[in-house]
Simulated scan of single mutants.
Amino acid sequence: MASLNSSSSSSSLSSHLSSPAATSGFTTPLSSLVSIPHTLPSRVFASGAVTHALDLPPVKSYPTADVLLSVLTLYAKRVRRNFGDNEEDGTERAIPEGYVDWLTRLLGSGLSWIRAPGSSSPDDDASEELRERILDIIATRIAERSGRTGAPDMVREFDVPGLKCSVVLREPSLTADSLGLKTWGSSLVFAQLFRGPATAAKGALQFEGGERILELGSGTGLAGIVLCALGYAVTMTDLPEIVANLEDNVQTNGARLWYDDDRERAEVAVLDWTSPERSPIYGQKFKTVIFADIAYSHEQPALLSRVVPLFLDSASPKAQVVVLLPLRPAFADVRASLWTALDGIQFAPVRGGFESGWDDFGKEEYYWSIWRPRAHVDRGIEMNINTLP
C-alpha cells in the first residue's frame, strides 16, 4: 500500500488541530496535547489505498493519539459545493467500508489508554482532556456520515453565474422544526435563474433596478444574497429562530460580493406569517415579492394568501409575485392549494417554466411562475391555473 505524503499531511493535521472545530469548548490548544509527527504512521495511507476499515488501526492495538488524529483528519468532511452527484470537494477521500463501525468501536472503547505527551499516567488531567477532545472529534465524524438530518453544523459553497466569487453559507444542525436552517436545492435553482437589471438575458428572471424586493422564507439566504450580488436591493425575511443565521450569512457574503458598492443593499427582518403585524417591516410595500419551496404544509397557502397582499403594492401595474416550487409528488395537493389561494386573491399566472436541479436527497424537477394582480393582466396572457403542475 502507498504511504501518505508526510509533509502535506502533517500540515493538514496541524491545521486541523488548531481549527475552531477541534478547539471549541476547550481552553488548551489540541496541538499542544499531541506531538505532530514528521512522518505519519505507516497505517495511514494515500487516497484510495484504504478500502476497508480492517486496514485502519485496530482498536485492540491501542493506537496513539497521533495515529487516531491523523486518520480522523484524513476522513473529515470537506466544504460542500453546490448539489448533485459530485457535490463534494474533489480532495475528499473515499471512505473505507466499515469506517463508521470502526468509529463506533473507538467511541465505545473510551480510549482509556491514551496519554498526553510527557504524561506518566493516562489518568492525569492532560490525558483526560486529550481523550475527551478525540472522542468529541470521533462523534463529529460519525454525525457527518449520518445523513443530512444527523449532520453537525456545516458550510457550503455555491457557484452562481454572473457573480465574481462563490456564495458561502453556514448551515447549523438541521432539526425537524427548523427546516429554514438548511439550504434547499430550490434556492440554488432559483438563484441560477436571476440576472442583473442591466443584463440582456432572454428567459431569465430579471427585476427592475431601484426597487426593493421582498423575499419570504429566505432560509440560509442563497436566493436573496445572489440578488444583492447582482445589484438588487432585497429585504430577506424568516422566522425569529432562522434570522440570526441568515444575518450572519448576509454579512459574510456582503463583504465578499457587494459591500464595496453598497452596504445598505441587503436588509434582514423577522416576519412570522401568523402575526405579520409584529414584523418591523409591517406597513412597507414592495413591487416584487419572491419565495421558493415554502409550500410544504396545508396551512401555508392560506397564510401566504394573507401575507402577500399585505406587502405587495398591488396598485402598481408592475406588481408581481415570483414563485419557485419543487415538483414533489407528495405535495401536489399543497401546490394546487397555493395556486387556488393566489387565484382567490385575484392574482393571475402570466409566465412559467420547468427547471431541473439537485438537492441533498437526489435530482428534483422544479416549476417557477410569475403572478400579477389580475386587474393589470391582459386576459390574452393569463395562464389557466388548472394547467399548472
Results as ranks from 00 to 15, higher is better:
Ala2Arg: 12
Ala2Glu: 10
Ser3Phe: 10
Ser7Leu: 09
Leu13Asn: 05
Ser15Gln: 03
Leu17Gly: 04
Ser18Met: 07
Ala22Gly: 07
Ala22Glu: 08
Ser24Leu: 12
Thr27Ile: 03
Thr27Trp: 09
Thr28Ser: 00
Thr28Glu: 08
Thr39Arg: 15
Phe45Val: 14
Gly48Glu: 15
Ala49Asp: 13
Val50Lys: 08
Val50Gly: 11
Leu54Asp: 11
Asp55Ile: 04
Leu56Pro: 08
Ser61Ile: 05
Tyr62Phe: 06
Ala65Phe: 01
Leu69Thr: 14
Ser70Asp: 09
Leu72Trp: 09
Ala76Lys: 15
Val79Met: 11
Arg80Trp: 09
Gly84Gln: 06
Asp85Lys: 08
Asn86Cys: 05
Glu87Tyr: 10
Glu88Phe: 06
Asp89Met: 04
Asp89Trp: 04
Glu92Asn: 06
Trp113Ile: 09
Ile114His: 04
Ser127Lys: 03
Ser127His: 04
Ile137Asn: 07
Ala143Cys: 05
Arg145Ile: 02
Thr149Cys: 03
Thr149Glu: 15
Pro152Leu: 02
Pro152Tyr: 14
Glu157Pro: 04
Phe158Gly: 00
Asp159Ser: 14
Asp159Trp: 07
Val160Leu: 07
Cys165Lys: 13
Val168Trp: 12
Arg170Ala: 13
Glu171Leu: 10
Gly180Leu: 05
Gly180Glu: 06
Ser186Trp: 03
Val189His: 06
Phe194Met: 14
Phe194Val: 02
Arg195Cys: 06
Ala198Gln: 13
Ala198Asp: 09
Leu205Arg: 07
Gln206Ser: 09
Gln206Phe: 00
Leu214Asp: 01
Ala223Val: 01
Ala223Lys: 01
Ile225Glu: 08
Leu230Arg: 07
Asp238Tyr: 02
Leu239Pro: 08
Leu246Pro: 14
Asp248Pro: 00
Val250Gly: 07
Asn253Val: 12
Leu257Val: 05
Asp260Thr: 10
Glu264Ile: 02
Arg265Val: 11
Leu271His: 01
Asp272Thr: 09
Trp273Glu: 01
Arg278Asn: 15
Gly283Gln: 11
Lys287Asn: 15
Phe291Cys: 10
Asp293Gly: 12
Ile294Tyr: 00
Leu310Glu: 15
Ser314Lys: 00
Lys318Ile: 00
Val321Trp: 01
Leu324Ser: 06
Leu324His: 08
Ala330Pro: 00
Ala330His: 04
Phe331Ser: 10
Val334Ile: 15
Leu342Phe: 13
Pro349Gln: 11
Phe354Asn: 10
Glu355Tyr: 00
Ser356Glu: 13
Asp359Ser: 14
Phe361His: 06
Trp368Tyr: 10
His376Met: 02
Glu382Leu: 09
Met383Pro: 01
Leu388Gly: 05
Pro389Met: 03
